[in-house]
Design a protein around this nucleic acid. Sequence first.
DNA 1: GCCGAACCGTAACGTACGGTACGGTCTGAA
DNA 2: TTCAGACCGTACCGTACGTTACGGTTCGGC
Lengths: 213, 213
Amino acid sequence: MLQADGTLDGERLTERQKDVLDAALRLLVEEGDNLTMAAVARRASCSKESLYKWFGDRDGLLNATVRWQASKVRVAPVDQGKVDLISLAESLEGFARDWLKVISSDTSIALNRVAISHAGSGRDNLGAIVLDNGRFALAKRLKPVLDAGKRSGVLVFEDAETAFRTFFGLVARDVQIRLLLGNWPGMTEAAIAEDAARATRQFLALYGARKTQ
Amino acid sequence: MLQADGTLDGERLTERQKDVLDAALRLLVEEGDNLTMAAVARRASCSKESLYKWFGDRDGLLNATVRWQASKVRVAPVDQGKVDLISLAESLEGFARDWLKVISSDTSIALNRVAISHAGSGRDNLGAIVLDNGRFALAKRLKPVLDAGKRSGVLVFEDAETAFRTFFGLVARDVQIRLLLGNWPGMTEAAIAEDAARATRQFLALYGARKTQ
DNA sequence: GCCGAACCGTAACGTACGGTACGGTCTGAA
DNA sequence: TTCAGACCGTACCGTACGTTACGGTTCGGC
């Protein structure tokens, strides 16, 4: 079983269980929400009995799988040393690239799909987990950068939250919803880079102190 | 049965069938994808046999329901007469308000959820239908406005598609994905108006010819 | 009034799948 | 050697639900 408090959860998992969750995750990417307990057991070469012993029930398994993937994506905080405009722009562009790469990845799409499918039905909603480790984690990492830019006079805004959300919108646009709905075969590396650059340029045009360049 | 060609489809439906689809739609909003044929029949006061006769199978019923709702949202094209900046801004703001109202509505959330749940599994993907009548329909209505603004010198851009997508991103930001994932109790009328105004302001700051005001 | 079509309500069928039980195997400790 | 625990594989159970079948009712046309 997995602890219910929403705190750190990568712990308390044996290596075997992690392997099983990896198998479940791969299966989730391939088959979507209509995976069966038997299929997971077969893929992971474990017994259904063990699945139920470890994760309680199907919802528990899905929950653990989502948490397991989330715990893998946790990233290091960024350095706030440099605050000039070009380094800030580079930082923003990096964030944009990373985010686009994440939301266009197979696993992100699969996880968001299953979380959306279960929205408002499962007792513990996967949507909150996905959001916490996706959009909200991004905000938590990006806001210090924005604040640093504001303190150093490179950026000007009053509310960091709305500034972040504007950046978010400029980066993501309609990409995520289209991918979730099955549109678009997938974004190439070049398209991601171009989109990130454009979004950064537009964001600086809106929130940059003065167009020094 | 419903014709398979993706053309206009509000036709070929008797009033009775439309009532049934309305009932199915309400049930879809309430219960999500886990609605049962029996529940639809009970809610619509019709027999399961009729459901199967009219719509083939469960997928067919879902498909018809989505198409039915889509056919109801079809809107009139906008007038392109006025092209000065303030009327253009008003027009954009109206689009933004409408779009925010749509994506935060119960039925839109429910339809997107079921379309996402079935992405890549159902033989006819609901995702395409939802996109065609949502994001793509919006683009088709908005682009003439953007082009008119460009011709009259109020807006300056090279590609209408990317301009539209920027506007889309500025309006929607993280609203839709958060709603689909179960976050946010719902946007108030005031918040929608404020967001629409902000998005329009930002879009004009990026694509307006010169800040005449 | 009679007939067939359309339809309602309900009962029944088949099956996929969540969940459980159980026998067999391995391992590590006493 | 033996015992306990963890685990695999598989068979099994119960049920929900998609799908079909059928008797009864309404209704429009002759």
